[in-house]
Design a protein around this nucleic acid. Structure first.
Lengths: 224, 224
DNA sequence: CAGTAAGTCGAACGTTCGTTCGAACGGTAA
DNA sequence: TTACCGTTCGAACGAACGTTCGACTTACTG
């Protein structure tokens, strides 16, 4: 099947991937609206009009980057999850997979995290649908974890989206030169999410009356 | 001094605030690059050229929104913190203040969180400087909390930035109709950050042996 | 009253944008 | 050779962009 990374310019798919890689970098640096097709032409070495042989519009280009990235990360996760049974193990696998992918494909993941609203409605729904599946998967793992009986009462939607917040915010601050690599990062965030920083040593926990009253209502919204 | 909110169109500052409010909404909906001055003209009811009497460029407009919002949230926090002494109490105050402000000024906070890179370098540094102060404040509280001795060993930079990730991601998913309001949200996120979702009830730190090669190496290590 | 300053805006400026189009290329098959 | 097909690109299109400018109105001062 596919080789490691070196894109093969000889066939259509190979050159398209080459363009997608450079386009993702440009979008991640200047933002979708801030980047021009001319920027992408310059970065990829393909002429302005030549690009349109490989995609039909700027929107479609963004769509291709997002859908490819999202499909890829979700596929990897599902592969990883077949080996994990215990809910906590599965959650750690999700975090590890997400962060590992994030640091390995920073441009693509930044575009995915940052430019979700730039996509318009024929394409937007399709990406949102994968996002929903990803969220539901995480949510399922969380619910399973809860059923082990060792969990405080927490609004599950808020909890899962907070976890995604921790992970997806990484692109705003992570500096490979000073910050931990994927393994440690995943370890730390899993630890914070599962046990917190104080590890229940101190707080007699203030008793909110009904923390998850709103948990009943759902409505599947985006992950982000 | 200043009234509650109703902007006074009669003086310069009042009308500028009026414009800033509408501009923040437009930026939050279409993105900085995606929004045109004409959009802001339409939204605010001020003519295209009339806007330039109140700010000198689109960049400056973004700068004004960001600096005002950031200064405001930081000032509120400092006011709140004088009453809080214990590190945990101070951290809860920070989370509560941040989220409360977020939900009360969603457009401005989205612009602050989402459009930080759109600002260019005369202005950018100035906003970055306030951001740094805000981060240092949070970091200081975290270090104080650590000194109480009831904390697991966690990379403090990663921990604090994870907390900000949880909070700043809110604008991507929060729906006032189905999600908790500020109090509950702050309560939940503080709880997750401090004690985690499992509250240390279960884990003697289960070590899945062969999840994959990377995870195993980190084995029982808590995290640095 | 005339004179000044603050505020407002229509019309236009030069530039850049996404996209199109037709001509040209290289390789293969007859 | 001619014919074809996948690929490439220079040049141009109209539209939209941020910004400017000068004329105009309004409100206050003397």
């Amino acid at each position: 099947m596919a080789k490691t990374t070196p894109t093969n310019h000889r066939n259509f798919q190979g050159k398209l991937r080459h363009i997608l890689r450079h386009a993702a970098r440009v979008f991640s640096e200047k933002g979708y609206e801030g980047a021009s097709i001319r920027d992408i032409s310059r970065a990829s070495g393909v002429s302005l009009s030549g690009l349109y042989y490989y995609f039909e519009s700027k929107q479609k280009l963004l769509y291709l980057i997002q859908i490819n990235t999202f499909t890829s990360i979700l596929k990897r996760l599902e592969r990883r999850l077949v080996a994990a049974v215990a809910p906590e193990e599965r959650l750690r696998a999700l975090v590890s997979n997400h962060i590992d992918y994030f640091l390995r494909h920073p441009a693509e993941m930044k575009v995915l995290a940052h430019e979700d609203e730039a996509l318009e409605d024929p394409y937007r729904r399709e990406v949102a649908e994968i996002k929903r599946r990803y969220y539901e998967l995480a949510r399922g793992i969380f619910e399973a974890l809860r059923k082990t009986g060792h969990m405080r009462r927490v609004n599950p939607r808020v909890a899962v989206l907070s976890l995604f917040g921790m992970m997806n915010w990484i692109y705003k601050w992570h500096n490979p030169k000073v910050d931990p690599q994927a393994d440690r990062l995943a370890e730390t965030m899993s630890a914070i999410f599962l046990d917190g920083v104080t590890n229940g040593l101190v707080t007699p926990r203030p008793r909110p009356v009904a923390l998850d009253r709103h948990a009943v209502q759902e409505a599947t919204r985006a992950v982000g």
